[in-house]
């Protein structure tokens, strides 16, 4: 799979940009949380694309955001 960069991303329509990012984030998130990967990816895709690109390059920041997303998701489901 080709690496994704900001230039390539910017040339795609907005929803396609999210799709491209989602396709790359999903397998990484699935490694941490197989059961919640779809929901977590959906949550992270609400963030700015520049942040999402950074997360693809930095496992630490991805992991931190995934943990954050899970906390938010659990709080939401507890309502």
């Amino acid at each position: 799979q080709e690496p994704l960069d900001a230039t390539m991303l910017a040339s795609a329509p907005l929803m396609d940009q999210k799709q491209l990012l989602g396709e790359r984030l999903y397998p990484l998130i699935q490694a941490y949380h197989p059961n919640l990967a779809g929901k977590i990816t959906g949550m992270l895709l609400e963030m700015d694309n520049t942040e999402l690109l950074h997360m693809l390059e930095s496992p630490e920041s991805l992991h931190a955001k995934v943990d954050e997303a899970i906390a938010v998701l659990k709080a939401h489901q507890a309502k």
Binding site: M15, K18, Q19, G22, E23, L25, Y26, P27, A37, G38, K39, T41, G42, M43, L45, E46, L73, H76, K79
Partner: peptide, 26 residues
């Protein structure tokens, strides 16, 4: 839509075109 929606967050499925928050019924 808002964060109180029971169906939030929208679920990403690989290979399925992403529609973001439009996936959620109002």
């Amino acid at each position: 839509s808002n964060g109180n929606n029971i169906n939030w967050p929208p679920e990403f499925c690989p290979g399925v075109p992403w529609k973001g928050l439009q996936n959620i019924d109002p």
